[in-house]
Lab assay of single mutants.
Amino acid sequence: EDEVKKIVKRLIENGVDDEQIKEIVKRQGVDERIVDKVLKELK
Rank of each mutant, 00 (worst) to 15 (best):
E1P: 07
E1A: 08
E1T: 09
D2T: 07
D2A: 12
E3R: 09
E3Q: 10
E3N: 08
V4C: 04
V4Y: 02
V4W: 07
V4E: 01
V4T: 04
K6N: 12
K6C: 07
I7A: 06
I7H: 06
I7R: 06
I7Y: 11
V8M: 07
V8A: 03
R10V: 14
R10F: 15
R10C: 08
R10Q: 15
L11F: 04
L11T: 00
L11K: 01
L11C: 02
I12F: 10
I12C: 03
I12V: 09
E13G: 06
E13D: 12
N14K: 14
N14Q: 15
N14H: 11
G15K: 05
G15I: 02
G15M: 05
D17M: 10
D17Y: 05
D17H: 10
D18E: 15
D18R: 10
E19A: 13
E19M: 11
E19Y: 11
E19K: 11
E19S: 10
Q20I: 12
Q20D: 11
Q20T: 15
Q20E: 13
Q20W: 07
I21Q: 00
I21N: 00
I21M: 02
I21H: 00
K22C: 03
K22Q: 04
K22Y: 11
E23K: 10
E23P: 01
E23N: 09
E23I: 13
I24T: 05
I24N: 02
I24R: 04
I24H: 05
I24E: 04
I24P: 00
V25G: 03
V25Y: 05
K26I: 14
K26N: 05
K26P: 01
K26V: 14
R27A: 15
R27Y: 06
Q28A: 13
Q28S: 12
Q28M: 15
V30P: 01
V30L: 13
D31P: 13
D31E: 10
E32Y: 08
R33I: 11
R33E: 13
I34R: 04
I34T: 10
I34S: 03
V35E: 00
V35A: 05
D36M: 12
D36F: 06
D36Q: 09
K37C: 04
K37E: 06
K37N: 05
K37Y: 06
K37D: 05
K37Q: 09
K37H: 06
L39K: 02
E41W: 09
E41D: 11
E41F: 08
L42M: 08
L42G: 02
L42W: 05
K43V: 06
K43Q: 10
